Simulated scan of single mutants.
Amino acid sequence: MRRAIAAAASTGALIVVLLAVKPHHSAEPIAVPPSTGTVPAPTQTVSPGTGTSAARTYTGTPADTKYGPVQVSATVKAGKLTDIKVLHMPSEDSRSREISAGAVPKLTKEALTAHSAHIQSVSGASYTSQGYMQSLQSALDQAHG
């Protein structure tokens, strides 16, 4: 009976330890530029070229979130979203930087695949995701406006 109790207690302790350990990710986190507190106004940059096939870059309006502003710029060529650059992400503390570093690649990949700001939020990064989509939609509105 004592061995059964000891085995159950040690198994329970092992489960608690395993649940408390955070998983390690093999991918290196991306660097998110720290917010300077000032966010540039939306702008449009025209890349070299002529006609409607030239790539144009549009800066989205900053989206204020609970953890800081989110702002992206979008490059559009021939009506398709071809590149997204992150200008500002929440970065006031290490947790915000960690969340942004994990969410940005996923959001960017999905937006470039969809050629749209209508994408799924990243689990655990709801505020960052919503700010990203809002700023990206602002940039795309300029492109189609």
Rank of each mutant, 00 (worst) to 15 (best):
17 V>S: 10
36 T>M: 03
53 S>V: 12
97 R>Q: 15
21 V>T: 10
136 L>A: 04
88 H>W: 00
72 V>N: 07
18 L>S: 13
23 P>D: 07
117 A>L: 00
48 P>Y: 08
61 T>K: 12
64 D>S: 03
86 V>D: 02
40 P>C: 05
109 K>T: 14
48 P>W: 05
90 P>S: 11
71 Q>H: 08
113 T>E: 14
6 A>W: 05
11 T>S: 13
49 G>L: 07
73 S>R: 12
97 R>M: 13
43 T>P: 07
8 A>C: 10
6 A>E: 12
64 D>M: 07
136 L>G: 04
144 H>R: 15
144 H>W: 05
126 S>G: 15
72 V>W: 10
109 K>H: 09
62 P>Q: 09
106 K>T: 14
63 A>F: 00
98 E>L: 15
52 T>A: 14
37 G>R: 09
127 Y>S: 13
125 A>C: 07
33 P>M: 06
118 H>N: 15
137 Q>Y: 01
132 Y>W: 12
108 T>L: 10
101 A>Q: 05
4 A>K: 11
59 T>S: 08
123 S>M: 07
108 T>C: 12
57 T>N: 06
88 H>E: 03
144 H>D: 11
103 A>V: 09
121 S>L: 14
86 V>M: 14
67 Y>N: 12
140 L>D: 00
60 G>N: 02
58 Y>W: 09
85 K>R: 12
62 P>Y: 01
130 Q>G: 12
35 S>P: 09
105 P>Q: 01
42 P>C: 06
86 V>F: 08
115 H>T: 10
81 L>H: 00
84 I>F: 14
78 A>M: 05
126 S>W: 05
117 A>N: 02
100 S>K: 06
12 G>Y: 00
140 L>W: 01
66 K>A: 13
103 A>Y: 01
61 T>H: 07
38 T>P: 00
75 T>L: 01
65 T>G: 04
77 K>S: 14
82 T>S: 13
62 P>F: 00
66 K>C: 04
106 K>D: 03
108 T>Y: 08
13 A>T: 12
44 Q>H: 13
127 Y>E: 13
71 Q>A: 04
31 A>H: 14
9 A>T: 12
41 A>E: 15
24 H>T: 03
118 H>F: 08
142 Q>M: 13
80 K>I: 04
12 G>T: 11
125 A>D: 08
117 A>Y: 00
94 S>F: 14
48 P>N: 10
99 I>R: 01
116 S>I: 05
67 Y>V: 00
78 A>H: 02
24 H>G: 03
73 S>Q: 15
75 T>G: 03
68 G>Y: 01
60 G>I: 01
